[in-house]
Amino acid sequence: MLLEVKKIDAGYGFLQILRKVSLEIDKGEYVCLVGPNGAGKSTTLKTIAGLIKPMAGEILFEGHPITGLPGNKVARRGISYVSEEMNLFVNMTVQENLYMGAYTVRDKKLQKERLDFVYNLFPRLAERRGQLAGTMSGGERKMLAIGRGMMSSPTLMLVDEPSFGLAPQLTETVFDSLEILRNSGVTIMLVEQNVTKTLEVTDRGYVLENGRIQLAGKSSDLASDPHVRKVFLGV
């Protein structure tokens, strides 16, 4: 197992959101976490990424415990988190942002290789390399956030709501780029509102409701599950 989350409780201050959430991801898998608003999807990702300390439970990455490690140490282990808010460096150019993504990579040649890889994936970013991140459109920012997350050649990418607030056409681009990433061997955990599309592209999924894992299984099975169809797909 690449990532094992064992019965974590987590939340903000006194507010507990996750209750005994357990999940597992194998190397090379494309897993999604779906659920209604406020179910705790983002909280789960933030807890794995080390931005929130779990109140109980354990997280293992490549067999080693990473529970309670600060975000920067988790990032160094090879987990890259692309947040919903993107958390770009708004006063830096696109290229500077990307190079910051490779902060843990000290090898200049490797940095350049990763940069070329990202520019290949998102030619749009290459066109805008000199522009300040804070002056870009929402879709471009999203691409930049994903690109920055890829700069450190992560083993596992946690992607939070990549299609949120994007035009349908851009959503396609974002999903396509995740597909390319996955084909290049990166394990991806995706949190999405767009349940139909997400269950189409991923291998496996977890359904989170009220801070608990309600269902787990193959994405194709989940898509035909009566409960999922009723709650998320409205049929």
Partner: peptide, 25 residues
């Protein structure tokens, strides 16, 4: 310098800095 860039990164987005592996403290 690398550290100088990290300082600027922290000033622009703390969470972003943590995500890319900068030792915030």
């Amino acid at each position: 310098t690398r550290t100088g860039r990290a300082i600027r990164a922290v000033s622009q987005d703390e969470t972003g800095a943590l995500i890319v592996g900068i030792d915030l403290n």
